[in-house]
Design a binder for these strands. Structure first.
Lengths: 117, 117
DNA sequence: TCCATATGTCGAGAATACCCGAAATGTGGA
DNA sequence: TCCACATTTCGGGTATTCTCGACATATGGA
């Protein structure tokens, strides 16, 4: 991921409505959610939400698909992964020891796959 | 990390000069860099850089310490870790399988500690 | 004390982001 | 075809951010 795209993604997430939208969509993976439901869930006018969704989409953080009358939005977690890797990359490059605690803190996420004995 | 602080950090990094500043400081851990050197390295007027550094500091991403005449800035990697954890948390909560590839992609960072056999 | 260096603060202009009412587009059914 | 619904686009007003010249503050040495 290049810096320009990283900034796009960071700016997209640096706004409360959009951040909540993205988190809401992550929780609704892989089904997604129609634009109207998102606007209703976050109590935001539908046209305002449309603008926010467009910004998230241009940043590659969400994708949309028309399902008859609805337009269903989904979170693109791989984009979040790319962003995370971009941010962490610098520590890894020259300072692997700096990066270790960060990666370590992330590992508990996998504990729900195989529960601790 | 609460959402308010996450947004502060995201907004701080969503600007090219500040993002480059942070990455520069990460590469200069743990020595840090004086404000003037940072401004010179990125070809930005010192007062403009001062404003950007203040925004990064309020987001907790950098810290400053006076060393006689210089004010040396350092990147706070733990804050980046908290931000990363905040972003990843949602996947982990309900969707551990979504999170697994993200964590997996991060693990190669540790390869420089113990080289693959 | 006075000066040079390093950094921060103030103020204002330009650019950009945010929000939402109103109108337009696209879809499926009567 | 016409209508109801879902979503986007347009227009604007307001708020915020970005930038930088000018000035202010802090430190150490002559």
């Amino acid at each position: 991921m290049e810096q320009v795209n990283a900034i796009l993604a960071l700016a997209a997430l640096a706004q409360s409505t959009r951040l909540e939208t993205f988190r809401l969509l992550v929780r609704h993976e892989p089904d997604g959610l129609p634009a109207g439901d998102i606007a209703r869930a976050l109590a935001v006018p539908h046209n305002t939400m449309s603008t926010h969704l467009n910004i998230l989409a241009r940043a590659g953080l969400v994708s949309s698909e028309r399902r008859s009358r609805l337009i269903v939005y989904r979170a693109d977690v791989s984009r979040l992964r790319d962003l995370t890797l971009f941010l962490v990359q610098d520590c890894c490059g020259g300072n692997a020891d700096l990066c270790a605690p960060l990666v370590e803190a992330l590992n508990p996420c996998r504990s729900s796959e195989k529960v601790a004995p």
